[in-house]
Design a protein around this nucleic acid. Structure first.
Length: 567
RNA sequence: GCGCCCGUGGCUCAAUUGGAUAGAGCAACAGACUACGGAUCUGUAGGUUGUGGGUUCGAAUCCCGCCGGGCGCACCA
């Protein structure tokens, strides 16, 4: 049984324990066969008339023993003890659902928990300190970040925050590909622009990076170093240009992500691994285990033994015996595991999905369990303005970088929009909509709820209310309107929502939840006037407003979106 | 050809992971405060969940076939 740290979790566990007890009792009495051993899950049903919690366990038992759900439900209820619990009524509904109706004392407890936890409300110990390394974005240091990087950054950062709240120790990591061929091409491209800036003859490399940013970079290189690079030997110059360009690019990417409110724990250099000889070590290990062979002058890894659809080359047959990309990547992941992590999560772009099996096979070849690695594929983004698609090819002039996106719509809207959709579905990002400061834009719906609550408290202070009072000073039973009960149930479910969403790796559901909370609050606001002459009622509603504000603030923080006091 | 992802009202997406009457937002229509922010709320209309089979108490969800879209299928990274 996992650790339940939330009030909802405690209540659920209590009911589940009673259900298990009832099943045991039924088995003793011969009402159910002895082999029945159900896995019970309680859900929060979609409609209030279906109770506070519900379970379909009777139906699953019924199918196991070839009976029908309603009669199994009847048997369970007959043996269920509800004394000394929150349960006041149990309905058998539809094909055999058990619907539990509870008194509101559990809600009172749940609300008090929000009050005392405040900024850390939502935290649970479900993951019990599990060490997770979450690697995301990891764009090549050859150019500015793009909008897909922005999407991966939003998803990765949010998921990291949610895992932390659910009890993981998370390290956010960015892998800098500063050693491969592409940074060599970057150096050559920069050299060409450098020579161009100095008015020299230059040769632009075949697959060079043609973006304007390299011209800017070349100009600042000239300012920095003058013509001194021309005096270097070709090799020395190349090495210098590579390191210089990479450091500039990485600094640029850091700045962009920092504007996004994202700070990594580690920027990991591929080069450092290469210099430490980690590559040859990987090849050696695989060779010693008999998992390699030579063919056509290359060294192959028997990845098919671990579920890959074909074997992969590790060392190419070219004169330099260079390695394929899988080798440094395996070395990197091996290094991650050696740092003591329990789980690695990689967030990759759609063009990498064919790569996953290979990587997983390699890790197993190195002796790691298959489930040490999880890969989340984040799908592509299509930018549009209203109906019109914005072209994103790097060759066309209309390429939109992450910087430009942020400048145009701001980080809040960008993050919110990226998180709104399931990471694995294709996203149409409407920049006109994201920029719009109106009700059509869903970001503001949630932020507005938060600002509205702040406004209530400003007003309350002006009118001389004592300020929000805590759970001990209010009369909880006054919170009985349907909108108040609905809102409180939502607020109570926050910690478990966080855990479930983190476990499913579906941060889009956080946004859905936030929209639901905002909606429930707006409905409450419309039906129930908060500030009034009725001190008791006013105190209770100010209390509920404060709790809502806490949940909104904590949820928005998880999403990396600001929670404004005024809009 | 093979693999992965996707297909749900006019548009963009949900659906508690196999559950109850498939839900939101936008757009459309009709309403709602001389008091807390109308960036709000309430209601109406809109669906054979691409399609054909199968699995079972129960399918948008799982399995098989087809149709349509996206992305991959390197001794590139």
């Amino acid at each position: 049984m996992d650790v339940a740290f939330s009030v909802v979790g405690e209540v659920k566990n209590d009911i589940i324990a009673r259900l298990l007890q009832a099943v045991e009792k039924a088995k003793e009495k011969g009402d159910l066969p002895a082999y029945v051993d159900p896995d019970i899950r309680l859900d929060i049903p979609p409609r209030p008339e279906q109770g506070d919690f519900a379970t379909g366990v009777a139906m699953s038992i019924a199918s196991e023993i070839k009976s029908d759900g309603r009669s199994v439900a009847g048997i369970i209820v007959k043996h269920l003890r509800i004394d000394d619990s929150h349960i006041v009524r149990i309905d058998i509904a539809g094909p055999g659902f058990l619907n539990f109706f509870l008194d509101t004392s559990w809600l009172e407890k749940a609300m008090a928990r929000i009050w005392t936890d405040g900024p850390v409300y939502g935290r649970t110990s479900h993951y019990n300190g599990k060490r997770v390394l979450l690697e995301f974005v990891s764009a090549n240091p050859t150019g500015p970040l793009n909008v897909v990087n922005a999407r991966a950054a939003a998803v990765g950062d949010c998921l990291a925050s949610m895992l932390e709240m659910a009890g993981c120790q998370v390290s956010r990591e960015f892998y800098v590909n500063d050693a491969g061929r592409q940074v060599s091409v970057l150096a050559d491209s920069l050299e060409a622009r450098y020579r161009e800036t100095l008015g020299q003859e230059f040769h632009f490399p075949e697959n060079g990076y043609r973006g304007e940013y390299l011209k800017d970079l070349a100009r600042s290189l000239v300012e920095d170093k003058g013509r001194s690079l021309l005096d270097m030997g070709a090799e020395e110059r190349h090495a210098f240009l590579r390191d210089w360009a990479v450091s500039k690019m990485v600094a640029w990417q850091k700045r962009t992500l920092s504007d996004y409110g994202l700070e990594y724990d580690i920027w990991f250099s591929e080069k450092s691994l290469r210099e430490a000889g980690a590559h040859t070590q990987v090849i050696e290990i695989l060779r010693e285990k008999g998992l390699t062979y030579e063919r056509d002058g290359a060294v192959w890894f028997k990845s098919t033994e671990f579920g890959d659809d074909k074997d992969r080359v590790l060392v190419k047959s070219d004169p330099g015996s260079s390695t394929t990309y899988i080798v440094p990547d395996l070395a990197y992941h091996k290094h991650k595991m050696e740092r003591g992590f329990d789980l690695m999560i990689d967030i990759l772009g759609p063009d990498h999905h064919g790569y996953v099996d290979r990587l997983a096979a390699g890790l197993q070849g190195l002796g790691f369990p298959r489930d040490c690695l999880e890969v989340l594929i984040v799908q592509t983004v299509r930018l549009c303005r209203g109906k019109e698609l914005v072209k994103m090819s790097k060759r066309g002039g209309e390429f939109i970088s992450m910087d430009e996106l942020l400048e145009e719509v701001g980080k809040d809207a960008a993050r919110f929009f990226f998180l709104m959709r399931s990471p694995e579905s294709h996203l149409d990002f409407d920049m006109d909509l994201a920029r719009l400061q109106s009700s059509e834009n869903p970001v503001f719906y949630v932020q507005y709820a938060h600002a509205r609550i702040a406004s209530i408290f400003r007003q309350a202070r002006e009118e001389g209310y004592a300020g929000p009072v805590g759970p001990n000073e209010i009369k909880f039973s006054l919170l009985k309107d349907q909108s108040e009960l609905a809102l409180m149930k939502l607020l109570a479910s926050f910690p478990d929502q966080v855990y479930e969403i983190a476990a499913a790796r579906e941060p889009n559901r956080l946004i859905k939840y936030m929209m639901d909370v905002a909606s429930a609050f707006h409905a409450f606001y419309t039906r129930c006037r908060v500030l009034s002459d009725d001190n008791k009622l006013c105190g209770a509603r100010l209390y509920l407003s404060r709790l809502t504000q806490i949940v909104l603030a904590n949820g928005l923080k998880l999403a990396g979106v600001s929670a404004p006091e005024i809009m």
